[in-house]
């Protein structure tokens, strides 16, 4: 018990407790402020460019590649898929607000009827099921192309994820937050270890990106994948790197993690799809 009488330990415990109990808005403020202070020479919107906001050399290569982006064909296919009617004659547009245009920034959203987080990819598949079509595999392929096209219609719109004032929505957000800060895998790393504490530093030859802005540019074309992939596919890669077993795409855990991460990037412009190493 003596340790708790130490004033420094006592103050640290209070600080941690305050952070755990913070509202999403307070979390977001602390989160964005943390990066603004650590990278004081970088504008907030620039964090949407991920690692290319931090690494000048990598950025010049990336900008050169952006003249002919490797996802261009996939993006066109995505538009075609989006506009191709289902067998019943309906389109994807019929399932979404504003005909599916310029809505990426609002996802993931919390469905208060079902009390679950709905990601854009989940909504795409639910639209298919609603129209008597088979759902698509979640991590890559057509779903990433359709999602990429929808993201492209939101280019420049500020991320605007909302958390309804319900116990369930807050609980989903908290679960995502806890997963983000919890250590996993044999290497005993949390997402935050790399993308908060060590953001901007090197892991082998690669610069670690900031968690702020990570959700704005998905789906991404990774040179390693040679294709577009969804955010949940990227979560898999991170977990594999720390020797943890990846989870199911669109599992509650991944959806909640996406919910938390997207909320942290509220206000940052959507700039997906994008290319990454």
């Amino acid at each position: 018990m003596k340790i708790f009488l130490n004033p420094f330990v006592f103050i640290a415990l209070i600080a941690v407790t305050v952070n755990v109990m913070a509202t999403p808005e307070e979390d977001k403020k602390t989160f964005q402020q943390f990066y603004s202070e650590r990278f004081s020479n970088i504008d907030l919107d620039e964090f949407s460019n991920g690692v290319y906001a931090l690494d000048k050399d990598a950025r010049s290569q990336w900008e050169a590649m952006s003249d002919f982006p490797p996802y261009e064909d996939a993006l066109e296919e995505g538009e075609e898929l989006f506009n191709t009617p289902f067998e019943n004659g309906n389109h994807y547009a019929s399932c979404f607000q504003n005909d599916g245009q310029n809505i990426r920034q609002n996802y993931p959203l919390f469905d208060t009827q079902r009390n679950t987080v709905v990601t854009l990819e989940l909504a795409i598949n639910e639209c298919r099921i609603h129209n008597n079509e088979q759902p698509l595999p979640y991590k890559k392929g057509d779903i990433a192309k359709i999602s990429a096209y929808m993201a492209s219609t939101s280019e420049g719109s500020a991320t605007n994820v909302s958390i309804p004032d319900t116990k369930e929505a807050l609980s989903a957000y908290q679960a995502g937050k806890q997963f983000f800060y919890t250590k996993h895998g044999q290497l005993n790393f949390s997402c935050a270890n790399c993308h908060v504490q060590y953001a901007g530093r090197k892991a082998r030859s690669e610069t670690l990106s900031t968690a702020l802005g990570q959700t704005t540019h998905f789906p991404v074309y990774r040179l390693k994948w040679e294709a577009l992939g969804t955010l949940h596919r990227r979560f898999d890669s991170c977990l594999i790197n720390i020797r943890a077993t990846p989870l199911e795409a669109q599992s509650e855990t991944y959806k909640n993690l996406e919910y938390f991460l997207s909320y942290m990037s509220n206000g940052l412009p959507i700039n997906g799809p994008a290319s990454r190493k």
């Binding site: 941690v16 407790t17 952070n19 755990v20 602390t30 943390f34 800060y181 919890t182 270890n193 908060v196």
Partner: peptide, 9 residues
Amino acid sequence: ANWALNLPK
């Protein structure tokens, strides 16, 4: 018990 120790200070 410890995840919150990773929160940004």
